[in-house]
């Protein structure tokens, strides 16, 4: 089985996003960028399918391909995925805001060429919080989808996926090829070891452009303003637990 995992380069989760004073967007200049945490979970799951682990048989996946869409620096994001254990990478070089619909179209073109049996994506990116790319890709391919996965069991030509839904868990079967998007509980990604980081440098990354894939990536939506949310003011400090409970009563919590 061949598994394809799209990975997104986002502002590192430890950093605070700053809205530009003129409201024209967020300021990302000179800030550390990292692999989107949900994408990291997706790569980890795919690599476990190849290595054996996380309930998967060894060699359940024969090959894991990491794909990223964005500027040249997305090479680093792909290297990160390769260091976790992906076999090779594909970079679709594109500048500016690429919306989930355009990402899904680019991925569809790559999938038609690569013919993977399973595509695992993060359920959402922690920058734009859209939670849309996986579902859109499934629609464009006419594939089934299993979003917000906390467990994937492969058997033959289908996968049983347990999904984190409001209020509990739901298990569904999807016929392969299928789209799965990851939720937090699916796994805890490893830290890439130094030898694997070195090995990742030698793995191949193929570079393409949206024009190569015949996809128009012009944004459909226009962001007219970016603003800070209302600021929250800290309250008073208390000296004792008794005082604390008193304040909670005042605040109407009990």
């Amino acid at each position: 089985m061949k598994v394809l995992v799209p990975v997104k380069r986002v502002l590192d989760y430890n950093l605070k996003v700053r809205v530009k004073p003129d409201g024209s967007g967020v300021d990302l200049a000179n800030l550390k960028m990292s692999i989107n945490p949900f994408c990291e979970i997706a790569i980890e799951e795919a690599v476990r399918m190849r290595e054996g682990g996380g309930g998967h048989a060894k060699d359940a996946a024969k090959e894991v391909i990491a794909v990223s869409i964005g500027p040249e620096q997305c090479q680093e994001t792909i290297r990160n995925a390769l260091a976790i254990g992906a076999d090779r990478g594909i970079l679709v070089k594109a500048e500016g805001e690429i919306e989930p619909l355009a990402v899904a179209k680019l991925l569809k073109a790559i999938i038609e060429a690569e013919k993977p049996d399973l595509v695992i994506l993060g359920k959402q990116a922690i920058d734009d919080d859209n939670n849309a790319t996986g579902q859109m890709l499934a629609a464009l391919l006419d594939w089934p989808q299993a979003t917000f996965a906390s467990r994937i069991v492969l058997h033959g030509d289908k996968a049983s996926v347990t999904r984190e839904v409001d209020g509990g868990l739901q298990t569904i079967d999807v016929a392969l090829p299928a789209i799965v998007t990851t939720d937090l509980r699916l796994n805890e990604p490893r830290y890439a070891s130094l030898p694997n980081i070195m090995k990742a440098k030698k793995k191949p990354i193929d570079v393409k452009t949206p024009a190569d894939l015949g996809v128009d990536v012009a944004p459909r939506l226009k962001v007219t303003k970016t603003a800070e949310p209302p600021k929250r003011q800290g309250g008073a400090k208390v000296k004792t637990a008794a005082e604390l409970v008193g304040k909670l009563k005042e605040a109407g919590v009990f």
């Binding site: 996003v17 967020v26 922690i126 734009d128 919080d129 603003a227 949310p229």
Partner: peptide, 9 residues
């Protein structure tokens, strides 16, 4: 966006 750290129109 950014888990509510910015609001966009």
């Amino acid at each position: 966006i950014y888990a509510g750290n910015a609001l966009i129109s």
